[in-house]
């Protein structure tokens, strides 16, 4: 590498011209990275803008309270799908959170052991599992043996997808709790399990809540795992052993249909879904902020 510092000579020297060229290249490339960043942001802006334009015109109060109507009839809503999605999220949390948080605690308390490393690696692999594979697995394991689609199977599939995310955040957040705090609790006569749950987990709770919210936001919009499990339902159903409607499924069905009415409903559904996801994501950010802002001594 040539030294610029040794370049006190005249501006016309070849080295100085080389330096100028290098500087120009540098500025151009920096501008290009700037353009790349802008281009990376543009799709979100376009998608959100288009979504708001299409969705807002189709969205009405009735969308939240009415049932879907057959083609040709005006109005109708996705009340059943909104409820279905909330039920599925609840089921997913019931399946996924205990395992995710428990596995995360295990990983944090057994750091460096061979089993912990293996579990962590496999959690990452599970995180990269295609959601459609989770879908056919859930069908094979939870639908086929019982002979019918069910909300339970859908919730279990979504819950399984939450596990890796939740366990990873739990592990990282528990690791940020100082070892000294753990020792203080043990020295005070806390049994290990109470130290772990009442002192360590409670201290890390803010961060874990953030991770849980991120995981919920992710599975809330998942469609592929539900195609052959929750299946969808055009009627009002809260029976966990029966097929249940879900927003993403309804959006998919309506989007690939040939009817303009249904397209409008799909946009309204997408707006509601992304609103749900954004609210959860922003809440997660807010929880993280509050936690860091609060500051421990």
């Amino acid at each position: 590498m040539t030294s610029a510092a040794s370049d006190h000579g005249a501006f016309s020297s070849p080295r100085a011209r080389g330096l100028l060229r290098r500087r120009v290249v540098s500025v151009i490339m920096i501008v290009l990275t700037c353009v790349a960043a802008a281009l990376a942001v543009v799709p979100l802006v376009v998608i959100l803008a288009y979504l708001f334009k299409q969705g807002a015109s189709a969205l009405s109060f009735g969308f939240f309270t009415h049932m879907p109507k057959p083609v040709g009839e005006v109005g109708g809503g996705m009340a059943n799908a909104i409820l279905g999605t909330l039920i599925l999220i609840g089921l997913a949390a019931a399946f996924g959170l205990p395992i995710g948080i428990g596995a995360g605690l295990y990983l944090a308390e057994h750091r460096g052991t061979r089993l912990a490393n293996l579990v962590r690696f496999l959690a990452d692999v599970l995180n990269g599992l295609p959601s459609i594979v989770m879908g056919i697995f859930a069908w094979q394991f939870l639908v086929k043996p019982f002979g019918h689609f069910s909300a339970l199977a859908g919730g279990a599939a979504l819950g399984a997808m939450m596990i890796p995310l939740v366990s990873r955040t739990t592990e990282e957040m528990v690791r940020t709790v100082p070892q000294a705090l753990r020792e203080a609790a043990l020295a005070l006569g806390y049994p290990r399990w109470r130290t772990s749950l009442q002192i360590v987990l409670r201290t890390a709770l803010g961060g874990i809540v953030t991770g849980v919210l991120v995981a919920v936001a992710r599975v809330a919009g998942e469609t592929a795992p539900l195609l052959f499990t929750a299946f969808g339902n055009s009627f009002w159903s809260t029976n966990l052993r029966q097929p249940i409607a879900a927003l993403p499924l309804q959006i998919f069905t309506y989007a690939i249909s040939p009817y303009d009415d249904w397209h409008a409903q799909a946009w309204a559904g997408a707006l509601v879904l992304i609103g749900l996801v954004l609210v959860i994501s922003v809440t997660a950010r807010f929880v993280t902020r509050a936690r860091h802002g609060g500051g421990h001594g």
Partner: peptide
């Protein structure tokens, strides 16, 4: 952008 559901991208 990573949090937008796949089905919304599709739509």
């Amino acid at each position: 952008l990573a949090a937008v559901p796949s089905v919304v991208y599709g739509l």
